[in-house]
Design a protein around this nucleic acid. Structure first.
Lengths: 212, 212, 212, 212
DNA sequence: GATGAATGAGGATTCATTCAT
DNA sequence: CATGAATGAATCCTCATTCAT
């Protein structure tokens, strides 16, 4: 049985560690979103976080491992957010979800652009973190497919919609819009994009158009 | 004025140069699509092309400059292809264009994935080749906007469509689908995706859905 | 003056310390014999022993100091063994000693190979632990010289043998055989080697050959 | 067909390269023999050779590869020397060979001690260059075995000698003596050692002692 | 006493770039 | 024109060591 002192001390050590880890992750996300994965050095991450050059290596073992953790971290945060939102019909969920997604990219939160940047860095076949990103993508598509099934049950989504194909197109669209927002922020007018995006998705969900 | 002999000789030199340059570009695209921009070295490009380690440097001056030329090169090829296709109504052009785009990503041609990879590497704000990619994107969006205008004139596209927002969503979707195809090729079923994509875009172009 | 209770407690502390130290030494010897001195980290030693990363540092002060202690430890163990064996004539002692030495290198005991490994790491002039190894070597040679003197007194060893030269050759042979057993264990056939080694040393001790 | 100019130029380039490579190898051997493998950095090798920090990496690809080349280099040089000496009976060859070997370790040539140092660094099971050293050792033992067979044919070596066991003992002895010379140069008196070594080997080769 | 958090030096490796041939 | 020799900056990674708890 640990004495109180030991408990406190251990607690504090753990806290210190958690604090440092959080600072490192935050710093990594910021640097990655501005400089990219390849140009972000572990040393820089440590120093921007207010620690030493070696700490990020020491904690995460390797740069690859750090990136993987950042991806998981971002996915976890994303799922948390999603869960809070679930409301209304399937169609509403998808339309509003897209809207929220785009809206976020005008936030000061560095996690969102950083995820897109890591996603972009993972495109080459031989990339190191393909696995983690592939899982994150598939997990997102799975949620989309489920929401479509739900919408088709509640009547808000047309039976013409193919869940599998749609999930790829929908996810692709969100990522692709976010990417353009990173590349040419000055050209991306949030209002117009968000309005058109909602119309776009709404139309696609309500059935094979030419028929009506 | 050069003598005929000199002209011939010069011509042959120019041809050789063009040949070598093409080989280098091809080799660069292949390497980039498998290894990514950061992990592709100029020396490797030269050697894979069957030339010396120094040639890529010699011709392109710097790595940044090479990447920029690759982007321009890809854009030029893309425009050539587009121009050949333009036929039918505006709506048809957009639907078929998307279909073609996706189809290409199942080709053995390395230029297509390489462009996506370079695009992915350019997402961070401080990336080197943002300018070239931004121009390529904007140029693509301009074509999309024009096609929408045409379609709205010829009646194949609803007036509800906002050309500016649509161009971002549409281009984003194509890029995002291509990216997913790079990340998880085994999950991307071309038939389903292409069919749903056509439906998706068709629906979006034919008007604000809920109304009908 | 400590109370009885304190004494017991202190005793237990001391025992614990000794236990931990032994575990650390054992773990260090194992790691060194497989990974070498340079690639064995203090943290790994602690963790393999079932303790913390910092304990080896804490107990031994520095890596150099640990290595020195390991060398002394091995030497002490070796001397203990030697003392138990001393029996028969000087010649017998040397022949049997060599045989025992070689035999040990087929044991599962990690201390024997670890000593050879540390010895190998100490060969460069500027090595850290030259002093400790040099003392161990010289101490071994001293014993050999004494045994020769004894053998020359008891008549089992020829007067032609030069104790100083012989001690170097004999010790070198043992170390060199052990080293080969580490490098190519599959090629070292213990029976042949031990038989020939006994013959070899026996012949050398019994006098300047060509004369007889 | 190359022009004369090209030939000259290419020649000179090759010469430059060979010169640099030789300087690097020389510098590496010197540094390794004084500081050991682990403490010799590629940067230091390059700079001591009068070149840049990066050159050794650039040429040899990796430290492991450099060490392997140094071992091969040393083995090649050794074989050259051996071939020049072969003369006399088998027994003479072995006695004189040992003498030469020991004598060399009092030379200013850094290759000899460096090989012993690399050999020592290779003793741990998981060492990187075990393969190269194992081959060098086995190649040396093969020569020894052949010489014994020759000596047994020409009558200079007793039939009692077991070639396999002897080759291990003999090579071990040479390496072990050389190692002691590195560890305690001040204690190694060349004359005594060489004289005793010759007697030692001579006795061992002339037959199982006690019989005579 | 024991743990493990944090540091920072040291070194291997990669590679764009420059330059002599 | 083309080659490849040589440079040196950049960065990952390992680890002994120090120190707070």
């Amino acid at each position: 049985m640990a004495t109180k002192k030991e408990q406190i001390s251990r607690r504090t050590q753990e806290e210190r560690r958690a604090e440092a880890e959080e600072a490192l992750i935050r710093s990594a996300l910021e640097l990655i979103s501005t400089n990219g994965v390849a140009r972000t050095s572990l040393a820089e991450i440590g120093q921007r976080a207010g620690y030493s050059r070696g700490l990020a290596s020491h904690y995460f073992g390797s740069k690859d491992s750090l990136i993987n953790q950042l991806i998981s971290h971002a996915r976890r945060k994303y799922l948390q957010r999603i869960r809070g939102q679930r409301a209304g019909t399937g169609a509403e969920a998808l339309v509003m979800g897209a809207d929220e997604y785009v809206k976020e990219h005008y936030d000061p939160n560095p996690a969102t652009p950083a995820l897109i940047v890591m996603w972009g860095a993972t495109l080459p076949q031989g990339a190191n973190n393909t696995e983690a990103i592939a899982q994150a993508d598939e997990s997102a598509r799975r949620i989309i497919r489920k929401t479509i099934a739900q919408g088709q049950r509640d009547g808000s989504i047309s039976k013409d919609v193919d869940a599998e194909g749609f999930s790829v197109a929908y996810l692709g669209m969100l990522r692709g819009i976010a990417a353009q927002a990173l590349i040419s922020p000055e050209l991306m007018k949030p209002r117009k994009i968000r309005a058109e995006l909602k119309r776009f998705i709404g139309a696609a969900l309500s059935g094979s158009a030419p028929g009506c």
